[in-house]
């Protein structure tokens, strides 16, 4: 039972981190129809920023988290404004927009390596009192619980933001039909830009929350990229609720396989399941349009 709880919590932590990225994938796809390969490296960059503020400059954790998230929000917005919008205006084919995000992710990864050198950095504990919390007989670190709680809060906040606020409504309108939305006086370009910003901020949040359980290094992004994309697809690409469910499935699957079977096979199982899903039900849990007909 002890092991079950600790594996479950580990899986949830991983799943929530994947979830933060998959949400970004789905949001961006919904808003603009593009794949964004930078997402995972935004996570890494955000984690590094928070590490810099918290560990090096000794800013309180809450403040450094907020600062990093805000900075990443603007980086994401700027990315859309200065690169993707330019390409779309030039009528570049979809795949070139994707390629530009790949180039950007190469730049981010290597910039991080040059700024904060190549070795992994230790993220200091968030709580002064580092004694683990008791859940029944199992003990769980406070950082893991914080990660899960903050992730759930962020997801709920996003849900209300999209559904209840004026800006969220205009975002959904722009995602459904750009022309009609702009006729209604919605600034479509700005909404898309802000969507990229939100996606970057979510990625950053995921990075900060997972940082205490892992080390911060420039390779952090590549650990998460493919699998969180897989999560977004399993859920049904472009559906934000599906993205969360898919990411949790991937995270739990991975931890349970490595906990109970063997950590050598965890990736095998994850990608094997992924291919099976692709063969059997490629539209994901929340049916997305996938078929080529």
């Amino acid at each position: 039972m002890n092991m079950f709880i600790s594996v479950l919590v580990g899986g949830l932590v991983l799943g929530c981190t994947y979830g933060m990225l998959s949400l970004g994938f789905s949001l961006i796809y919904q808003a603009s129809g593009y794949m964004n390969f930078t997402q995972a490296n935004l996570l890494m960059f955000g984690a590094f920023l928070a590490w810099q503020f918290y560990s090096e400059w000794k800013i309180p954790f809450i403040a450094s988290m907020a600062l990093a998230v805000v900075i990443m929000f603007f980086i994401g917005w700027m990315m859309e404004r200065s690169i993707i919008r330019v390409l779309v205006a030039k009528k570049a084919r979809n795949i070139y927009v994707v390629l530009s995000t790949i180039a950007l992710s190469i730049i981010m990864e290597n910039a991080a390596m040059l700024i904060w050198d190549a070795r992994p950095h230790y993220f200091p504990p968030i709580f002064k009192d580092s004694a683990p919390v008791k859940l029944g007989t199992a003990s769980v670190s406070k950082e893991s619980i914080l990660c899960i709680v903050v992730a759930i809060c962020a997801m709920i906040a996003l849900h209300f933001f999209l559904n209840k606020t004026k800006f969220g409504t205009s975002m959904r309108a722009a995602a459904q039909n750009k022309t009609a939305a702009s006729c209604m006086g919605i600034n479509v370009n700005r909404t898309i830009g802000i969507t990229y910003g939100i996606a970057a901020a979510l990625a950053c949040l995921g990075g900060i929350l997972v940082a205490p359980t892992l080390y911060v290094s420039y390779g952090l992004g590549s650990q998460f990229g493919a699998k969180s994309f897989a999560g977004a697809v399993i859920g049904g690409y472009g559906n934000i609720y599906g993205a969360i469910v898919g990411a949790l499935i991937i995270g739990l699957l991975e931890t349970f396989v490595s906990g109970y079977v063997s950590s050598a096979y965890k990736e095998f199982v994850v990608y094997g399941v992924l291919i099976l899903v692709m063969i059997i039900k490629p539209s994901g849990i929340f049916n997305a349009k996938v078929y080529d007909e």
Binding site: M35, A226, F229, V233, Y271, L274, V290, Y291, D292
Partner: peptide
């Protein structure tokens, strides 16, 4: 059977 994004993911996998 798959379109763009899913094909990308399948080939990555």
């Amino acid at each position: 059977k798959l379109v763009f994004h899913f094909l990308a993911l399948l080939t990555i996998a």
